[in-house]
């Protein structure tokens, strides 16, 4: 087996393992999803059901709800494996930790981020979001939620063995640029302006953030590991 296929096997092993584990623990992916939907439905209840008013708020509401929901499962990225000794086994496997981090981030996104994309479709009914905004909503959430998973992994690595709330406190300020760009995409689309420039920014952040944040997370694991 050559090195490339070994790395791919290692990536797939970690990804498959984390996905199987997440689907066995239904709470891991159901809680962020249910939380997202509850937050979205609370707004029409609290602010009234006037369509035009809700649709102007919709982009901010969806993005804030997505941001908070993705934070709920941040702790599960590394802390569970740290507590039961699996992280020890991963770190001494002789395989690159970078690949481990990448696989864990993708698993986290598939379990928490991807369902939010589907849930956001439901939320458009509650918030009277025009049909034409579905594309910018989905594409911005696709990139944004993956970036949030990358930041979540960094927060999780910086707080290995510590409480979950600490990682949320670290991740929240770091995710402000994603929130601003995500809302900017939606607001521009809502006002009929060109939203692609903001999408390019999000894309650039994703392109730089994927290797950059995975490397930072790898270092954070080793620095915090005890």
């Amino acid at each position: 087996m050559n090195e490339k296929s070994t790395l791919f096997n290692w990536f797939m092993l970690v990804l498959k393992r984390d996905l199987v584990l997440s689907f066995k623990k239904i709470a891991t992916f159901m809680i962020p999803l249910v939380f997202f939907l509850i937050v979205i439905t609370l707004f029409p209840l609290a602010l009234g059901t006037e369509g035009s008013f809700l649709s102007t708020l919709s982009s901010g509401v969806i993005w804030v709800a997505a941001l908070l929901s993705s934070l709920l499962a941040v702790e599960s990225i590394f802390n569970e494996d740290y507590r039961d000794g699996t992280l020890d086994q991963f770190l001494i496997s002789g395989e690159p930790t970078f690949i481990l981090v990448l696989a864990k981030v993708l698993a986290h996104w598939l379990v928490t981020g991807a369902p939010l994309l589907l849930a956001s479709l439901i939320s458009t009914f509650f918030l009277f979001l025009p049909e034409g905004l579905l594309f910018p909503l989905l594409i911005s959430l696709l990139m944004g939620t993956f970036l949030l998973s990358l930041l979540g992994a960094l927060g999780g690595a910086l707080t290995i063995g510590k409480t979950a709330i600490l990682s949320a406190v670290i991740v929240l300020p770091l995710s402000v640029p994603i929130l601003i760009l995500g809302v900017a995409v939606m607001t521009s689309a809502l006002n009929g302006q060109d939203f692609f420039s903001y999408l390019y920014f999000l894309g650039a952040m994703l392109a730089i953030g994927t290797p950059g944040l995975c490397l930072a997370t790898t270092e954070a694991i080793f620095i915090n590991y005890d």
């Binding site: 290692w10 584990l21 623990k25 039961d84 000794g85 086994q89």
Partner: peptide, 25 residues
């Protein structure tokens, strides 16, 4: 290496715990 923590997942079956063990390439 086997430490104090046995690196076993409570939600996995006995078979799955071995299947997903890192050392089973």
């Amino acid at each position: 290496y086997q430490g104090h923590q046995l690196a076993l997942k409570n939600n996995f079956t006995v078979f799955e715990n071995l299947k997903f063990s890192h050392s089973i390439f």
